[in-house]
Write a protein that binds this DNA or RNA. Structure first.
Lengths: 241, 241
DNA sequence: CTTTTCACTTGATCAAAATCAAATGGCGCG
DNA sequence: CGCGCCATTTGATTTTGATCAAGTGAAAAG
């Protein structure tokens, strides 16, 4: 389902932005051509290897980003090394926590990714004079809050099997920005990352994958490639009746 | 530490608002006297018994609220009845999820409380023409998101003991709107609610309370009244080094 | 004053997931 | 091709917290 481009004066828009896959769904979509030009002057696209850190827990935030392609994981670590993924962001999500100096989380690429960085200060300035932009960011924050709360139910009350099924369902409904639900996909996370997302160990995650495979809820090839013959059935396994 | 009232034309402000404990910290604080009057025309204060429901999961949102006094819990339930508290809100928090029709969560008073209700439509209209108001709501959403993510780490990676200690620390730092940290307080939640907040059973919560008491981390009277002789020590038990 | 009720505690046992320990199976590389 | 490296799986055992089952104690009701 292709989204139609609606720009009246496409020529006013920076070249890189014109071709940007993330522009219409992301925060840039609410900017005027002039604002887009201003932001673009200070922005730069970067390719990130899987595992590359965007920002670390406790670091000073100097940049925000838009995710152009790929999946970024947001993690929190305890002093003794225990780790929890507290969010997964997909293109064309905005990446950043407005209005604070120090990042409370680590953000790193879960898959090979591409992001567009721009200085915190430039966007903060833009937000102040563009209510539409703040509205967009507000909506994204609320979406992330809804997702975080959904996940709290999963972390607090679901069994290991339900957690793994919930994760698979989440991925099926989020990996492809074009489609809301797909039945064949590649997992953007390793078993270790999945464990950190679900509050489990990698062994438990692996055993639940095996169990779901043996019960024909999913099919797996090469550890990463998954297909779901019956999405309703997966949802039931996830505890979402 | 009393906050100084800064109104220039106090007489322009509705009488109920003038005396309102929540006004300066809450969303109303960013409104002009005229806007406050408009909102006040449609708003009404209500006392809520402990357990009273503000809105139910799946219901249509017709009102937003400000919490004047008390603690409100936000819960999610699964089809089979398993339940998870996904947020606790304290005075003078705003209560509501802007921009959606149907509530994804249940909100109910955890303690005897007082709220100020106003129609969703009136505030939504006000938000559209008041960037300051949207900014305030945006900040609150981000605060709640930070809290939700902190809690995800607790739910996913902490032991029962650390969870209970984390809960006690959270309460010590949130029950009193005037003070950021107090050492003697009443628990606003029953053991059952604490269990639903921590993703544990009431038996496990009870056992951990007993253990913390025996190790002199806390003192308990009448099940609800808690004192913390050494807050640093409690923090260490909570795993926040 | 006694009884009932309800929230909480305590105890015994069980089960789910963690931990410890190997085995397997690609995949890149000399 | 064979080797070593990782990620993943599988197996055996242990641990943590859940479940099942009584107790306790304080406050409300009779």
């Amino acid at each position: 389902m292709e989204v139609r481009r609606q720009d009246i004066h496409n020529s006013d828009i920076p070249v890189v932005c014109r071709a940007c896959e993330a522009r219409h769904g992301g925060v840039c979509g609410v900017l005027t051509p002039e604002q887009l030009c201003e932001l673009n002057k200070h922005s730069s696209r970067h390719r990130l290897d899987s595992g590359a850190e965007v920002i670390g827990q406790g670091e000073t935030v100097v940049n925000y980003s838009n995710i152009i392609r790929g999946v970024v994981k947001l993690t929190k670590v305890m002093a003794d090394g225990r780790q929890q993924i507290v969010g997964l962001q997909f293109a064309p999500d905005f990446l950043g926590r407005p209005f604070i100096e120090e990042s409370a989380i680590t953000a790193e690429a879960a898959t090979e990714s591409e992001v567009c960085n721009f200085p915190r200060k430039v966007l903060d300035r833009l937000v102040k004079r563009t209510p539409e932009l703040e509205h967009k960011l507000h909506r994204q924050a609320l979406k992330e809050l809804d997702e975080a709360r959904d996940w709290m139910l999963t972390l607090g009350r679901k069994t290991a099997q339900e957690k793994v099924a919930s994760f698979l369902y989440l991925i099926a409904t989020h990996v492809d920005p074009e489609n809301i639900e797909i039945t064949v996909f590649d997992l953007p996370l390793s078993r270790a990352d999945i464990a950190d997302f679900l509050g489990l160990t990698i062994e438990t995650v692996s055993r639940q994958f095996t169990k779901l495979r043996k019960e024909n809820v999913i099919r797996i090839e090469n550890n990463r490639h998954v297909s779901v013959p019956d999405m309703e059935r997966l949802m039931r396994y996830a505890g979402n009746d």
